[in-house]
Nucleic acid binder design. Structure first.
Lengths: 174, 174
DNA sequence: TGGAGATACATGCAAACGCATATATCTTAG
DNA sequence: CTAAGATATATGCGTTTGCATGTATCTCCA
């Protein structure tokens, strides 16, 4: 038993290491023109959300404190990349959506970035391996983990990562 | 072909998501007493290096810019947790090592943190799964990937992650 | 040998972050 | 219906980050 604890820690450390190595690699590329990786992360997350998203929803995906995200979105809004509207249903909340310019920029950067990601991943892993990686990481992230790889029933709870399930090809398609 | 690109991107996104979710979870725990997670990361990395390490070596493991790491180490040195000595062999470089206090603090925090990590990982994954995760992530990180799980030949190039291969149990042992 | 370029780390400075807290709205027990 | 508490987001403020650059040392080739 005491061994499995150790192995579990090694696995997490390996994940951290892979994350750091690849993040640095991606950051060093010329992909990021006029947006930082964090800003892109927000734009990308917004692009995956069907309708307007809320700050708190965004904040579940982005590794940033709530105030930091609030200001980051503020900056993106000032640059005309996202639109921030008061929510009619909930006066405290905000509805966020990409503007046309924001969507364009996300797609453009997303295309380049997706290429880098695909290159890095496929260079080291076999298809079977990165499929396993996806499955395992989804579980780790606490997602229901859709085991079937084709048209899963789409259970539909708005858990951590809800995605429209279509349309997200746009940014990944070459 | 165009499909595998997409799947590879999904795998990376899943990894990012798992990273973000677990990092937030760990950050929210009471584990971090007097050190931030980044500071702990540096202390931990130092604890794994056999002898004194160099800044640039550290910087390979930690996701921070070189100036940020330089100052972070400076702060740790001021607090008496790490020792910074000029390198006799290379006048430009610095040799970093944990002080006794630094090692103690690392172990104490490491014990708590390792528990959290083990809890989180084993709660979601089977032993076979986190072993696979480790193997796959090591490859992703560009490590030689020791396929044998017992006493690998220890090729020994000082690639990204060189670890003493022993002693690191100390911080993970319950 | 000498000097151009590379490497290792540090520092000035503006931008961005996290923590604590403020503000506004929603929810709910009484 | 109201007051207490929860929730969603924003803002003040000190700290930390990244970028550009500085300084010192090392490397290597002419």
């Amino acid at each position: 038993m005491t061994g499995s604890r150790h192995v579990a820690n090694d696995a997490w450390e390996a994940l951290l290491s892979a994350h750091a190595v690849l993040m640095k690699q991606f950051a060093a590329e010329e992909t990021w023109d006029s947006v930082s990786m964090r800003e892109y992360d927000v734009l990308y997350t917004l692009s995956k959300c069907a309708g307007p998203a809320r700050m708190s929803e965004l904040n579940r995906h982005v590794l940033l404190s709530q105030p930091a995200l609030s200001r980051l979105v503020g900056r993106l809004a000032e640059r005309g990349l996202v639109e921030r509207q008061p929510d009619s249903a909930d006066g405290r909340g905000v509805r966020l959506a990409l503007t046309a310019a924001g969507r364009d920029l996300q797609r453009q950067v997303g295309r380049r970035h997706a290429r880098s990601v695909a290159r890095a991943v496929t260079a080291e892993l076999t298809p079977a391996q990165y499929r396993q990686l996806e499955e395992i990481c989804r579980r780790l992230a606490g997602e229901p983990a859709p085991p079937a790889r084709q048209a899963a029933p789409a259970v539909g709870h708005l858990q951590p990562h809800q995605r429209p399930a279509d349309q997200q090809d746009k940014d990944l398609a070459s």
